[in-house]
Design a protein around this nucleic acid. Sequence first.
DNA 1: CTAAGTGCAAAATGTTTGCATACTT
DNA 2: AAGTATGCAAACATTTTGCACTTAG
Lengths: 154, 154
Amino acid sequence: MNGKKSYNTRPRDRILKSISSFETAHFTVSDVVARLREEGQTVGKATVYRTVERMAEDGELRKYIVDGTTAACYQRVEGNSGASCREHFHLKCEKCGRLIHAECEELRKIVSHMKEEHRFLIDSSKTVFYGLCEDCAGEEELSAGEKNKNAPAK
Amino acid sequence: MNGKKSYNTRPRDRILKSISSFETAHFTVSDVVARLREEGQTVGKATVYRTVERMAEDGELRKYIVDGTTAACYQRVEGNSGASCREHFHLKCEKCGRLIHAECEELRKIVSHMKEEHRFLIDSSKTVFYGLCEDCAGEEELSAGEKNKNAPAK
DNA sequence: CTAAGTGCAAAATGTTTGCATACTT
DNA sequence: AAGTATGCAAACATTTTGCACTTAG
């Protein structure tokens, strides 16, 4: 996908395996390094950066910047094949920091709607909904009307 | 909004003025420092960071992380008057940086849907949809189907 | 043999923090 | 006087890069 050959080396193999072990979850470069270290395998983080960056360029991983202070997150792209690509959004709780994955028809509709009516092409991989998760929003707020929308600031 | 008093100091005044001068455009801390320096005014960047960070907490500025390698971007929030900003979303063009305001029934629906079905309280004032605006998305992409979702990589 | 990959440590960013000093109220 | 703010430099965190060395094809 990138026109560049890649050699099969032991470090590369380890890194790829480690990335696979994250399944479809998010991970950072540090996560990979840490996980490998736990298994007694050492790899230079520069190599991890290089590997992951290339994979992102090749479309095998998706790169996210979830929050300012946090490191870049990567995530395996599943079924990276055009039409089957799911609209996948993220919900980030401003209070506890939890990152929730949301995949649903409503969200898919929004993408179409924005395209048709507002002529704006949403990049769902970069879009994050901020707000309060179930645990952090009080029960009252979740069942209440439309008032008190202001979340307690960070 | 923050419960903390703030003193009127010369550096603070300069920073506020500089931020105002960016109108509704986005800017980084370096931008502010640079612009001030051009005018022969010096301020410690730590002070700018502190000022801007607090303003973001207070809801006067909005903080964006546009890209991994890029610094945090701030942008003045217009009409930051509590309830009026409800159900009001922003669309940010990743290419030209344009910030578009969107207020529509569909978006309002999403808020309810997320609350009812996903038990997540969206904070619409902090949520930004990233993507491509009408001008930056090619005509083909806007009328095309679901293929070619990959934005031109960095 | 040649192109590509690796690891280390240094450099480059971008942001935060400790602290002594200065300013506001 | 008490509470904030400031600026500097050092501390931090993340990512990139230069370079000598190894490895795959």
